[in-house]
Design a protein around this nucleic acid. Structure first.
Lengths: 249, 249
DNA sequence: CCTGAAACATGACAAATGTCATGTTTTAAA
DNA sequence: TTTAAAACATGACATTTGTCATGTTTCAGG
């Protein structure tokens, strides 16, 4: 679980994000929030959004940074991380394309990010100033309702996660994680479900609140029992039903 | 942690909630969501809301029930609980006057409550049909923004809780709980801060994901160290700064 | 003011998980 | 292709927390 000595001050590769550009249409059609808007609102909103690319070792923003923008994941995945004074860190959520973040108006009251957002591999993110975001929500009740719906889902998800952390053993938590990732980002293959996200044992450990060693040991057991195979970039779920059993045992 | 053999089917006292009545003004002025509305909107909304009282042993709704209403706590506290197949349960949040619940539109897509809401002592709750709630949000962008802000706060809170559950030891989690309760519902007194909520060791255990025995032992240690005193109904925080130290150690 | 139930308490032991040390394999960059 | 870093792996042991058993205290309702 101990990942880095001073997580918040280390930034391995100091390359700056690529130059922002005005968001072109394209993968943009899978974003519910944007699809809800009228044609002209949508045009206007897109003009207000800029697209930025991030890569390994960079940060989109960090715990404690002031909140200035509303974000949408366009491509790739982004992890939301919090860290404790002791240097341990936990991953709260993996955001995928279409996911909104910093959509909570609360975060904008001259306040600071409660956690860090970092890219998992190459990602592309759309962002919009606080003001433009609020204007959009005021103009379009549909957009506001969509955000409420989205936040409600996120809240339920977060509470479900808290429940799992509070009540389940390490192996059950890990099984839950694999099941939900398989369902959210799994690509069916001949011998199972391949996860679209690259996920090391340490990543998994941070997501379910155990040490890396524990995650490794449990994954070894799952592998022996033919529930999963592969590591990191090539993680394969071979027996989803049985993993579900373990998760809810 | 094992509270009841079959939590979802036991209902000790079958007394039905007292008759709903149209919400009179009064304590209603502390509810931000209602204060934001224009005078006539407020009138209309209040006409659509009914007030219901609940007492010990009753449920406001239960895990799995269909979602039909939007709720606001008017008086007393309400706990949000989830339970696992094994019969263990965890308390996700204690709602206080002014808190909204089931404000997530998601819960309204013909869907079911992800958890149980039960009164802690005598409570009074305002509620409103799904339709009236959505009408209000559509009519008033301010109300929608208020709900977005509220949900954002709840989300941050839930994620902070998940972080604590994932990374901290039992004593730190308990200390965090006491600190946040002291700050949210504490009444200053000569010898410390009295908690306004009645809270047994079992309640605390359910809130931080440990067994009742563990909560008892840790509280005994806290008592010995003069950090707290009293039990259940008369819980007193005697050394908030030191509890904060423990929580963030 | 009883009295039974709930809440609090404590010990002994078991189980789960963390910690540290060390070594192998895989991956990705030069 | 080489090579250093990251990821994976495993054992020995410490620590934390859970489990079960049992007893005392407190409290709310009759």
């Amino acid at each position: 679980m101990e990942s880095e000595r001073a997580p918040l001050s280390k930034q391995p590769k100091k390359s700056s994000p690529s130059r922002p550009e005005t968001a072109p249409p394209g993968t943009l059609n899978q974003i519910p929030l944007l699809n809800i808007l009228s044609a002209q609102d949508r045009e206007q909103v897109l003009r207000e959004m800029t697209e930025t690319h991030y890569g390994k070792g960079q940060y989109i923003f960090r715990e404690g940074d002031p909140t200035e923008y509303f974000h949408i994941v366009k491509e790739g995945s982004v992890k939301c991380v919090k860290s404790s004074p002791g240097g341990k860190e936990c991953t709260l959520k993996v955001l995928m394309p279409g996911d909104l973040f910093c959509c909570d108006a609360a975060a904008f009251d001259g306040s600071y990010h409660p956690g860090t957002a970092q890219p998992m591999g190459q990602v592309s993110v759309l962002r919009m100033s606080k003001k433009a975001y609020f204007d959009m929500l005021r103009r379009s009740p549909d957009a506001a309702l969509e955000v409420i719906k989205y936040l409600g889902n996120r809240l339920n998800e977060a509470q479900e996660k808290a429940k799992v952390l509070a009540l389940d053993r390490a192996d059950q938590r890990l099984a839950s994680l694999l099941v939900s990732l398989a369902e959210r980002s799994g690509v069916p293959e001949s011998s199972g479900i391949r996860l679209a996200v690259r996920l090391t044992r340490q990543d998994m450990a941070n997501m379910v609140g155990v040490t890396t060693e524990t995650a490794i040991r449990i994954m070894a057991r799952f592998k022996k029992d033919r529930l999963v195979s592969g590591t990191a970039a090539r993680l394969l779920i071979r027996d989803l039903p049985r993993l579900k059993m373990i998760a809810t045992a």
